[in-house]
Computed example of a mutant assay.
Amino acid sequence: MTGREDPYPRYSRLREISPIVRAADGALVVTGYADCQTLVRDGRFAHMPADMLAFVGFPDWREHPALLQLWTSMLTLNPPDHTRLRRLVGSAFTARRVAALQPAIERMVGDLLDDLAAAPEADFVSGFAFPLPVAVIGELLGVPAADRPQFQTLVRDWTQVLEMITPDILATADPAAAAIRDYLGGLLDERRKEPADDLLTALTQAQTADDRLTDEEVLSNAALLFAAGFETTTNLLANGLVALLEQPGRLARVAEAPDAAVEELLRYDSPVQIASRIAADDVELAGLPIEAGERVVAYLGAGNRDPQRFDAPDELRLDRENNAPLSFGGGIHYCLGAPLARLEARIALPALAARFPEIALAGRPERRDSLTLRGFTGMPVQLGREAASNGASSLT
């Protein structure tokens, strides 16, 4: 079994060797929970600034849509630019706006379960784990339902640059990023003429007393929110279902304490496995001096399985207490969409268990070829008999 298929034994081995090791590409890698937490929270570690792309072979990064779209978004910017964008985007992407989506999410879950019930076997990724979050983030942003399916391929092609940047990858990622930007640009033009009750309109109106988002900032961050809005949740649902089906009766237990169960699923097989930073100054981590400019990588999936932080970390315990997975990062870059991803999973998984209590894998799931974003591209499932009720009561 490859490291991408199951990285956790290798993570464990790395922890045994040293709390911090140097990888073949020169980056320093940390695998312990405390060190990973420090890396994503401590302001002495920053995202690689765009001008450093020149040092890895891309001085023309602004001419590559895939790079331009990422390095002008909240994901990679550092203070004070990040602080400004986070404040403005956060003023539009509010907890109230997320909470207001609950009835829509419940309706979408019910509709997708109805669609699954049309056949005894289905693909869980294409039939549920992808269309649910893409419908939710599409609803939130204001992307019409008929336009949403195209984004699965476009976003996955674009986000390859999170794993590695090479000319071959950019040959696929650039046109995908350009297509996303062009589509959202057209939608933005429509919202300028006819505002709607959606996040894209709210982003165009986001402002403080003396500042507001430019159109380019709206587009870069709308693209980021769209991509992150379904990539993380799709992986959470798919990884979570596989883990739950490893033991009979485990899926049904999610409804007993859905909040705790979702946190444990996030910890057990994190949708995001890696966070990379650059030391902004000379600093010490895990007892090792690190020079300013050195790249340091937190293996979040390893930190989530650290026995110094979690009792029996390789066991899935749906009632685990004092759980605080690293899966959504931390500090100023903590995932803005984390509450939405949690809400979707808390609704979807109990509803799935209530509707199809006998659901089981019908073949080997197909793992996506990525370590940074961990998930599946396909997952055949046998639904078994439906419960006597259609499960609608579990959605209220």
Rank of each mutant, 00 (worst) to 15 (best):
D215Q: 08
E216N: 13
E217T: 04
E217C: 08
V218H: 00
L219C: 10
L219N: 04
S220G: 09
N221V: 02
N221K: 03
A222E: 07
A222S: 13
A222N: 09
L224M: 07
F226M: 15
F226N: 12
F226D: 06
F226I: 15
A227F: 00
A227D: 04
A227I: 03
F230K: 03
F230Q: 02
E231Q: 12
E231K: 07
T234R: 15
N235R: 11
N235S: 10
L237P: 03
A238N: 04
V242M: 12
A243L: 09
L244N: 02
L244P: 06
L244D: 01
L244C: 06
L245R: 04
E246I: 00
Q247K: 09
G249R: 07
R250N: 09
A255I: 02
A255Q: 08
E256K: 06
P258D: 05
P258E: 06
P258Q: 10
D259E: 15
D259L: 14
A261K: 11
V262N: 02
L266Q: 01
L266C: 05
R267L: 08
Y268S: 05
D269N: 09
D269I: 04
V272C: 05
V272W: 01
I274D: 13
I278Q: 10
I278F: 08
A280I: 06
A280Q: 13
D281A: 14
D282S: 00
D282A: 01
V283A: 13
E284D: 13
E284G: 11
E284R: 12
L285V: 13
A286I: 01
G287C: 05
G287K: 03
G287E: 01
L288R: 15
I290S: 04
E291L: 13
E291M: 09
E291W: 04
A292W: 08
A292V: 02
R295Y: 09
R295L: 14
V296Y: 10
V296N: 08
V296A: 06
A298F: 07
G301C: 01
A302W: 01
N304K: 01
R305C: 08
D306L: 06
D306S: 05
D306T: 00
P307V: 05
P307W: 04
Q308V: 10
Q308L: 15
